[in-house]
């Protein structure tokens, strides 16, 4: 691999693979191969946008933003396609079920709220989430409080 752009891109993908995978998994819950497809599509977008990364935010923040935007685009595109039937779950009986229950509540949030809370769970600071979403740091903090309150209510009511 002699091309410096290709080498730098590959190094970036290797460093951020776990993060990319996590974003893809967030949006593609129905089948493992869907996550792989989404991963491939994110790699393509990252490659296309690679030249435009100016280092204004951290590499991790930039990758997360590109991956999230790609997944939102895929999700919107998939609206018109037949969706797999979701099996209704029984009442939660273990800690894992509770985590799954929480995951489903987060999954049902409005898009921006969902992205903000996922980024927060993934360890991004308010400032970094602000860079991803275009909101101010203060707005991110306020929004996070509101979302967490909403999630907590739904969780405790068994949504």
């Amino acid at each position: 691999m002699d091309n410096p752009r290709e080498t730098a891109y590959l190094e970036l993908v290797k460093r951020q693979r776990d993060l990319i995978w996590r974003v893809c998994s967030d949006f593609s819950l129905s089948a493992a191969w869907e996550v792989e497809d989404a991963f491939q599509e994110v790699l393509l977008t990252l490659w296309k946008d690679f030249g435009s990364y100016k280092g204004l935010s951290s590499e991790r923040t930039w990758v997360y933003r590109v991956a999230t935007n790609t997944m939102l685009m895929i999700k919107r595109r998939a609206i018109n396609q037949p969706q797999p039937q979701v099996e209704l779950r029984e009442e939660a009986t273990s800690d894992n079920d509770h985590v799954q229950q929480l995951r489903e509540i987060i999954d049902s949030l409005e898009e921006t709220d969902r992205c903000v809370v996922c980024a927060n769970l993934d360890g991004f600071s308010h400032k970094e989430i602000a860079q991803m979403t275009g909101l101010s740091s203060l707005a991110v903090a306020t929004r996070l409080n509101r979302i967490k309150h909403k999630i907590r209510q739904r969780y405790e009511q068994g949504f």
Binding site: V13, W21, R22, F39, L43, V99, L102, L121
Partner: peptide
């Protein structure tokens, strides 16, 4: 539960090895 979810997310790993990742990157 929120803390468990946070931990699960941060511990989740991409299952692809270097070779597969390189193949996918090259395809891109």
């Amino acid at each position: 539960t929120l803390e468990q979810l946070r931990r699960q997310r941060q511990e989740s790993r991409c299952p692809m090895g270097d070779e597969e990742l390189e193949r996918k990157a090259r395809q891109a």
